[in-house]
């Protein structure tokens, strides 16, 4: 059963743009990205859209469908009614290049600011040994496909361009949390989390968690635990005093100078 879907697609560039109306055929079982491709093939050959795997694994096709940040390849057409107008726009937090394609280099710059995994100096790469329970916690975060929908939805930057300088967004705070929880990492990442990556800007309103296509519990399992770990060190007078008396506490190096993105 085929029907014609009513689409409103944002067309434009970094200077100007508009929502344009189209009607495009839809077949059973299709996803939004299929329809965008059909639109490109039949009516709008110059429509710019970024995609790669069509399987929700490459993180390229991030956009906003009816105002919600989503992967186009993972948004099924049967979640909409046949007479519903479906609005498709590029992500609204990053600069647009053309049509549905945005410039996500902000994310790469922030990624470079996170100091790399640093195992103990005397440990050769082939000698890493870890217990399963120690690895498990950060495995959840390794599911990330770097679609940047979480950074796109985060109101800290989405609604305040000026915060982009001091805030790295949930994607990279989660990366810092992952490394801070890593038993073999020797770098103290708590200070850099607050000072270079803006952990304090997050008000735990959980939109990153709501949009993550990998269903990673970003807020509950990465951001809040990181806030708690920072509080252990920075905001908790009792804990600081107690740790002075604790013997054999692993020594942790200060983070190396952060390369500025």
């Amino acid at each position: 059963m085929t029907y014609k879907a009513k689409l409103r697609v944002w067309r434009g560039d970094d200077e100007s743009g508009d929502l344009k109306n189209y009607e495009v055929d839809v077949n059973e079982g299709e996803v939004v990205l299929d329809i965008v491709h059909r639109l490109q093939a039949t009516q709008a050959p110059d429509l710019a859209v970024r995609w790669n795997c069509k399987a929700g694994k490459c993180g390229s096709c991030s956009a906003e469908v009816n105002g919600k940040p989503r992967l186009m390849c993972m948004t099924r057409m049967n979640t909409f009614t046949e007479d519903e107008v479906i609005t498709i726009t590029p992500m609204r937090t990053f600069p647009v290049i053309r049509d549905l394609v945005t410039d996500v280099s902000y994310n790469y710059a922030k990624a470079r600011m996170v100091p790399a995994f640093a195992p103990p100096a005397d440990l050769e790469p082939g000698d890493y040994r870890m217990a399963q329970v120690d690895v498990e916690r950060s495995q959840e975060f390794r599911k990330c496909i770097e679609c940047f929908l979480c950074n796109n939805v985060c109101h800290v930057m989405r609604d305040h361009e000026d915060n982009k300088a001091s805030f790295s967004g949930p994607r990279f705070l989660m990366r810092i949390a992952e490394l801070d929880m890593h038993p073999l990492d020797t770098v103290d990442r708590r200070q850099t989390a607050v000072e270079d990556h803006g952990l304090g800007y997050c008000n735990i309103t959980k939109c990153c968690t709501e949009v993550c296509p990998e269903h990673i519990h970003i807020t509950d399992n990465a951001l809040i635990p990181l806030k708690e770990r920072v509080a252990d060190r920075k905001y908790d007078p009792l804990f600081s005093v107690a740790s002075l008396f604790r013997k054999g506490k692993e020594k942790r190096a200060a983070a190396p100078a952060t390369p500025k993105g």
Binding site: G12, D14, G17, G67, R92, T93, F94, V96, E161
Partner: peptide, 17 residues
């Protein structure tokens, strides 16, 4: 100061949800 910042897609609506 966000969604209408220069360089972003020009969309007037505060949300399209």
């Amino acid at each position: 100061t966000g969604i209408d910042a220069p360089g972003r897609a020009k969309i007037a609506a505060k949300t399209l949800r």
